[in-house]
Amino acid sequence: MVKVLLWGTLRHATDGQAEVEVEARNFKELLDQLVAKYPGLEPQIKRGVSMALDGRVYREAWFTEIRPDSEVVLMPYMVGG
């Protein structure tokens, strides 16, 4: 299981939980499992999210490996100028 930290406004979809656990070995599985377990997250995930894995931010990269002890933080899709 992987622990995923969510930003505040996503907690409405997880019964107020700031951190949830899902079974996932990579970013793609993480997103799929989050949607399956918490359907209320789907609109935001469809709009786009980034993932910070052990402090490193990924904007896409579905097959980035996630270890069970990794720090995983879901973030809005990053944009820059």
Partner: peptide, 12 residues
């Protein structure tokens, strides 16, 4: 390094 950032991830 090691600080939990205000937006979630831990800094390298």
């Amino acid at each position: 390094k090691g600080t939990k950032s205000s937006y979630g991830p831990t800094f390298d």
